[in-house]
Amino acid sequence: MTPEVPVDEDGVTAHRDAVIDLLGVLMYAELRAFDRLAEDSRFAPTLDGRAKLAAMAAAEVGHYVALERRLRSMGVAPEDAMSPFTDAIDGFHNSTRPSNWYEGLVKAFVGDGFAADFYGEIATFVDASTRELVLSVLEDTGHADFAVREVRSAIDADPQLAGRLALWARRLVGEALTQAQQVIAERDNIADMVIDGAGDLQSIGALLKRISNAHGERMRALGLST
């Protein structure tokens, strides 16, 4: 059950600075997602695959605009909200550049999925209108089913590919976890909101377990071992 969250007079959660941070990190993540999908499309073996990635990149722009609109309505400059997170997000993407089409698909499905679960859990601690926006931004744009079909088909044709992609996926999640920890460690606003909202270590443990379980399900969907 989603907890009731206290709100200020403007309808924003009492953890206003944490909301700004959450929207800022998501906004920059969407900007980088657009860049990455456009870049990864060069690996596409077919025009259909290239077109699908282009459509997904366009969806990320729509998410970016929605977050920008929300921040401006709060009187916050989007650049100011995004800037604290550029190093962490850039660091993740720079250290996990895919070398081929299938690594790119696994990164989008597993890496982005892990991030979506993480920020989706944080969204349970914000006000209802912000939560609705965040969850709509994190909603799958069609990449999931496409990635699963492509990767499973490739593994059926070359079973040895599964081992290489499983190692790649584990690396992605390790890097994504480091990024998430960096965001939490460097932004007391978000950490304080999560601690206040969760209430105790048992609830935080349950949160982390849900994220871990969701990751395992994604790996199984791809036909990869965890």
Rank of each mutant, 00 (worst) to 15 (best):
R210C: 01
M1H: 11
R16I: 02
P159F: 01
E68M: 10
P98C: 09
G163P: 08
G174D: 02
R16Q: 07
A77T: 09
P45D: 06
G163Q: 13
G197A: 05
M74W: 02
V148T: 08
E132N: 05
P98A: 01
D145H: 08
F43Y: 15
N100P: 09
V7C: 10
Y119I: 09
E175Y: 10
A157S: 14
F125S: 00
S212Y: 13
L165K: 10
V151Y: 06
Q160M: 10
L161F: 08
P3S: 03
L23G: 10
T2C: 05
I184A: 00
L22C: 08
E30L: 04
V148Y: 06
H93A: 04
M1C: 10
L222H: 05
R36V: 11
R218P: 03
V12I: 14
P45L: 04
L26P: 09
I155Q: 00
L208K: 11
V134L: 06
E9T: 10
L31T: 05
S129A: 15
A29E: 06
A33H: 08
F43V: 01
D196I: 04
E150P: 02
F125G: 01
Y102E: 14
Q181A: 15
G62P: 01
D90W: 08
G142A: 10
L161I: 00
G113V: 07
D112P: 03
I155D: 08
S136L: 04
T2P: 12
M219F: 05
Q181E: 15
R187A: 10
L37W: 13
A18H: 07
A180Y: 07
G199H: 09
K52M: 12
V151K: 03
I211Q: 09
R170M: 08
F146C: 08
H143Q: 15
G104H: 06
E79H: 05
S212I: 02
S203N: 15
V12G: 10
L167W: 01
A77N: 13
R72H: 04
D188M: 10
S212F: 11
G223R: 00
G120M: 04
D48H: 12
L53D: 00
T13P: 00
R164D: 15
F92C: 07
V183C: 08
G111V: 03
V19N: 03
S83E: 15
S203E: 15
G62R: 09
E217V: 13
A214R: 14
D40L: 06
R149V: 05
A214K: 12
F146K: 04
L161K: 13
S129W: 02
K107P: 10
T178G: 13
G163N: 12
E68V: 08
F85L: 03
A115P: 06
T13H: 11
A29W: 05
I184K: 04
R97M: 12
L22K: 04
T46L: 01
A88V: 12
A154R: 11
E68D: 13
E132R: 15
L47Q: 11
A221Q: 15
D140H: 02
R210L: 02
W168A: 03
P84K: 10
A185L: 13
I89G: 08
L208R: 14
S41M: 12
V76L: 07
